[in-house]
Measured scan of single mutants.
Amino acid sequence: GPREVTMKKGDILTLLNSTNKDWWKVEVNDRQGFVPAAYVKKLDSGTGKELVLALYDYQ
């Protein structure tokens, strides 16, 4: 199956793709996968990378 990404509340993840309104593709610890968009919030990183903050645990 697809590689699952797990996250804990407060984690910072790299946002790869947010074109789908329900599932965003993120990368964390060299793993890529989809997380519910409602579970993360975009951060203003000030760099080229888009980052998101995990609002809830997800696994």
Rank of each mutant, 00 (worst) to 15 (best):
Y39H: 06
S45C: 14
D11R: 01
T6R: 10
E27G: 07
K9D: 02
G1I: 12
L43F: 11
Y39A: 09
L51F: 11
P2A: 11
Q59F: 11
V5W: 15
Y39M: 11
P36I: 03
K9N: 03
V5H: 05
W24R: 00
A37R: 08
T6L: 11
N29F: 07
A54Y: 02
K41E: 11
E27K: 08
W24P: 00
K42I: 12
L51M: 11
T14N: 07
S45V: 11
I12W: 04
Q59S: 15
T14K: 11
K21E: 08
N17H: 06
K25H: 11
D44S: 11
L53R: 07
V35R: 00
Y58L: 03
A38P: 06
D11N: 05
G46V: 13
K49W: 07
V5M: 15
P36K: 03
D30F: 08
W23D: 02
L16Q: 03
N29K: 07
L55K: 04
R3H: 14
N20H: 12
A38V: 09
V35I: 08
R31A: 13
G1W: 14
W24H: 01
R31D: 06
L15P: 00
S45K: 09
K49G: 08
K21Q: 10
L55Q: 04
E50M: 13
S18V: 06
L53N: 02
K49M: 11
R3I: 13
T14F: 10
K25L: 15
K25F: 15
L16W: 02
N17G: 08
R31L: 13
L13F: 07
L53E: 12
Y58T: 02
Y39S: 09
T14I: 15
V52N: 01
T14C: 08
M7A: 01
N20Q: 08
L55T: 04
G48T: 09
Q32G: 05
D22Y: 15
P2S: 14
Y58A: 02
K41W: 06
P36D: 02
T14Q: 08
V52F: 05
D30T: 06
G46M: 12
L53M: 14
K21P: 14
G33N: 05
A54E: 01
Y56F: 14
S18Y: 07
R3K: 12
T47F: 12
A54I: 05
M7R: 00
D11Y: 04
V40K: 01
K9L: 05
L53D: 00
A38M: 11
S18A: 12
L13A: 06
D30S: 09
K41G: 05
K42E: 06
G1M: 11
T47D: 15
N20R: 07
K9S: 06
T47I: 13
W23S: 02
E4D: 13
Y56S: 08
L15V: 06
